[in-house]
Design a protein around this nucleic acid. Structure first.
Lengths: 164, 164, 164, 164
DNA sequence: GATGAATGAGCGTTCATTCAT
DNA sequence: CATGAATGAACGCTCATTCAT
């Protein structure tokens, strides 16, 4: 908190005018970043296109976003691996499908159309995003260089894992 | 550190006779757990069997290990997501292939045999283990129940992502 | 201060237009409450009645007031036990007898008439009000229930302590 | 806490080796002081002497103790007026009569022997100790000087309030 | 070699007060 | 005259590490 106040050029107490406490700050920042990511994903996303094409679009967009906004990505990832993130996911998984959840929609439709493997949603998520997140992390750390070609191949491979 | 000393039935200072500091302790514990996992994976692993079969064996073993040793898994994962883990991976990726690295061997052989997609090792790792780790975590958190059947289907799906 | 401003439906800074600082506010509020109490005590108080009767009147009134205005009482008491209260009492004891001070008048008259023990004013105060305050506090905390009968007996006991 | 550590010539964290937190420190210090006071009161206290004499002994001892240990007294008083003190008293009043409680014993015996007024214990306490505490405070603040003679007269007056 | 008391920088948070608007 | 955002010293507390015994 001290560091944030400092970077913001603001007194220690000022943060608490905008965020009740550290936890709230963390959660609100997460929500903002998530929305930013979501808005990015929705650019050029057409719900009427075939499942595969939509998946490729989303996967590519996610990877591109993470790669070009490494700070956002690092935050998102750290959040997911924190207790806050676990609570958030629990709510998401066991709660109602909210508007914003394109992935869930896509997967459910894909399963219904028998294009995607008939596996629990949680597993489909893992197959689709597990590799992407890992790959994004490794790119940022300089372990691979994900150029456009490689991004395409990676997403395609994810699709191979998903498709029937 | 205090808690560890306590659980060990030892004075707080005693830890420092065995580990220079917290960082070293964390790293050594990691190495021990990694070896334990490795030993587990190698049970019934035959380097002469076909690539696919070997992959299925390894994937299944990893998943089973993580699920039945959730404390080990939690530690391994937390380590990977920490600064310590990043340093460790950097060393592994840019260092020589060490003895212990079955995955690398397997993937390199698979690529050579044109059974596995021709992608950078790092990406192949991501495709293979990204989903497994995610799925293990979700199982432990109670988001899915990974029974033997589901484990099999999940590994098979990973293979679909990997194979040419 | 923030809470007071809030309850007053006023900006945080506005308080400082009416009270120089917290200390002044506390003191002025005390004075207001003291006056309120005083006004209550004076209802039906006749300076010509005998000492004893006047004491009974005052004691009963104090006790009744404290019991039916627990918030006022809590404030008065907290003030007395605070550094502010000490300063206030010092001024009162070593200053001139101000108009408002019926107790002092009563005790001095009582001593002069040889009805009340010949003890320093401060001690007489203690004998008269020490028990009352304690008893009021205990009533509010639920440690006794001071009904009318018990109030009467308690004041009478105080008088026994005071009288020659 | 910082101030205590400082006065103790000790680092900030050291306190927490001896007291779990501020609350515990406060309560333990209170108990120590209370015991000290109790030990002082019991010097020369004979349970077989008449009620009045025993009360005089106790009252005198309390007053003398408070006057000669003003720091102890200030602490005891502040404690009583704090939330911690209220909890403590509630436990004492509604709990079993513990060994240490000479006052209660004395009052109950006095009531039984019809030497002391038949009033609730809480009120008897108020009549006996309300004035003493007030008077001790005023002595320490320099509002009266309680010499031996005045102490005697004050205790006697308290007895007058108590006795039948 | 083992101990555990001591350390102190750092944590997240509060709150009386100020001052530009 | 009123506002309320900003302040920053101070709070209670933690914890990796040290060092005299």
């Amino acid at each position: 908190m001290a560091m944030i106040a400092d970077k913001a050029g603001v007194g220690a107490g000022t943060i608490y005018r905008y965020f009740e406490n550290k936890e709230v700050l963390i959660n609100e920042l997460y929500q903002e970043l998530e929305q930013r990511l979501y808005a990015y994903l929705m650019q050029g996303y057409y719900p009427d296109k075939p499942i595969r094409e939509r998946f490729i679009h989303l996967g590519t967009a996610i990877l591109r976003y993470c790669i070009s906004n490494p700070l956002d990505f690092r935050y998102l990832e750290q959040f997911h691996n924190s207790p806050y993130g676990v609570v958030h996911r629990r709510d998401k998984i066991f709660g109602e499908a909210d508007e914003q959840d394109v992935y869930r929609e896509l997967f459910e439709e894909g399963v219904a159309q028998q294009v995607i493997k008939e596996l629990p949603l949680v597993v489909l998520f893992a197959l689709a995003f597990g590799p992407l997140i890992t790959v994004a992390r490794d790119h940022i750390l300089g372990f691979v260089i994900m150029d456009e070609a490689l991004i395409g191949l990676t997403i395609a491979a994810c699709w191979d894992g998903l498709k029937r």
